[in-house]
Write a protein that binds this DNA or RNA. Structure first.
Lengths: 205, 205, 205, 205
DNA sequence: AATTAATCGAGACGGTACGTCGGGTCTTATG
DNA sequence: CATAAGACCCGACGTACCGTCTCGATTAATT
């Protein structure tokens, strides 16, 4: 996604930037973060794993936070808009995507960043807010279509549904993680099903 | 709470540990973490704020992580069991407590730690799991009493209700935080009400 | 010697000081210093080796320097006045004593202290000066008696003789030490003989 | 002199080491040691005084001892070979240089280190031995030339002369230092003269 | 015998310096 | 120009030691 970048000069002069470097660095960043956590996530480690020099990293990202957030945001967009024809189908697919996202190390890292940034007064909060709002919009579109189709009453709140689905998926994933386990695809289907029923029940009331 | 401590030798020999030191240090840790976030949370800073030497800190906690987790866990137990007579009242009070907990810097820090620890393979996961299970038990007791009273059908899942309430409260709090806002007590009441209705709707189905 | 001690109150009340403690502590101090040098000479180490608590040490010496200097001075007085009847015999015996003194770990430690203290502006310099002057006096008495007996001319300088004997003995000892060797008693006799001849030659001129 | 350094890789890659840094650090080390003595000689202090980060120091010297010894050895070589045409002139110049060397804080620090290292079993002793042997050689060359010129008999011992000159100069300097005084240039000339006469008297016998 | 008071071993205390490590910057030689 | 390498300054890490302090447990001399 690399939203945080300054617009590159691209004057065509000098050696062009190595093509795959951004990717390799962001991948390395997510892997390092996934393996060692925040403490233990070092720029030297990222550079070494990506096989580049530190200056190559700092040429593209101004600091550690920015790199990590950028790397994480790119994966965060794995959760995108869906349209299966029914509100139930849409929410189910969204929930399944979420569970899979949280099961992955990089996906969970995204959540870590969000919670971390949300907790401290920070220049980056506004940016993540945009991402968060984007996700809320997906759900509101789903609910809006459901209202149009008459599946849920007009007063149903997309924001609430979003919070329930995202929040419950996150909490369930965390519990499994703390137990040291990992969700299978079948369990994800089952959990998503229950969760959607519950959310819809609330939306209908 | 200081669960992580090894049981002290307590041979009565030598100068006894200063009584209030643990408290002062943990308070200082939460304040430092709340003000500066993870980066910017330093042991020297904690010691200075608590008015103790670094050795006094390291005598009680083996490292930075352990101190922070311990400090955070102590506050985590602010959320305890409730019994108001109805499942609706119980869940409402629980939700209100949660919202208030997440509004507080130290409370949010707790969540940060949980998400962080859940993301990395770690010796501390098992411990936090215990705390997490404790919270699930509170909700399961509430639901069990609800079943006894006939408020919800026998098949209602306490774990699911817990995930919905905790997760949605967390997500809502995070959204407000990312927007830079802060929940008022009235908004908390309102949110808690909606959330409980939704959860109960799901539990009854 | 324990010159640095304040005069003890000795009011008779309370538990009397453990008799052998001073000795054990000073011995331990010299041993620790001899084994580990200045860096590596720790009060905890001394107390542990002497089998006493730190308070027992600090009750007798105000700090590390004082203890070490005191311990070292006690051994320093191993070199005392002599009177064999001839200036040659006196100086020979003095030189032999010196060589033996410098061969010993504690004796060498004494020299270390002297050089160390002489190098830094310090409250302890005056004290060591006294000791140094004492040694000079021994030699001056020897030379004065030599003058009386007509062995050396009236203008002979005791201070110069002292400097030559002490200095040359020290330098020779240092060279042997740096080579990792150790002077035998025969070598000491031989060195002392040469040294005295040289010093007397100078004194006679 | 920096003899202790491992030969550098010098692959030409990466930023080269700042040219004057070694010098600045060693100067700072000697100044700090001269001012505060061993206790009070801190790496942070050296780095600050040299205007350098601690890592820059530790990149060049493995620890405090090594730095100090290296710094001191460099100055130790201030005393070098002389050749004035007569043994008397040579020794006189050597003695004057020595007295001036010991008068200087850094010079005296050198002696401190020597005595300190000579006193403890240590990896560094062999190295200082080399320096010590070098000094002995200077004097032996002087004496050898004196023998060639017939100024002293063939059996004269350079080592003994060296010990007498170095030792007596050191002892005299120490006495003056302990008294809190400082040798003037005139006194140095006078002392050197006396000392050389005495040493030559011995060498001739 | 009870009281008083000093000393003892033990070890926690507030500090300070250690030697290491990582962040972000800068400087070289090489593409 | 960008890059890989790596030295730079800074500051936090967790450890060790200093000299102080506070314990409970002795150990006499004084009541």
């Amino acid at each position: 996604m690399t939203i945080l970048q300054t617009d590159e000069p691209r004057r065509g002069r000098g050696r062009p930037r190595t093509p795959g470097a951004e990717e390799r660095i962001m991948d390395a960043a997510l892997e390092e973060y996934g393996e060692h956590g925040w403490s233990g996530f070092t720029m030297d480690g990222v550079a070494r794993r990506a096989g580049v020099g530190k200056s190559t990293v700092y040429l593209r990202w101004q600091d550690k936070d920015t790199l990590l957030i950028d790397a994480v945001s790119r994966r965060g967009s794995a959760v995108g808009p869906v349209d299966t024809g029914t509100i139930e189908g849409d929410l189910h697919q969204l929930a399944v995507t979420l569970f899979r996202f949280y099961r992955d190390a990089a996906g969970w890292a995204t959540l870590r960043i969000y919670v971390d940034v949300a907790g401290a007064p920070d220049r980056l909060r506004g940016f993540l807010d945009t991402i968060g709002a984007m996700h809320t919009e997906f759900v509101e579109e789903i609910v809006a279509r459901g209202i149009q189709r008459g599946e849920v009453p007009a007063g149903a709140s997309g924001a609430t549904v979003a919070e329930v689905v995202y929040g419950a998926a996150m909490m369930h994933s965390m519990r499994i993680r703390l137990e040291g386990g990992q969700l299978t695809d079948e369990e994800i289907e089952q959990q998503a099903h229950e969760l959607v029923e519950l959310a819809l029940c609330g939306a209908r009331a």
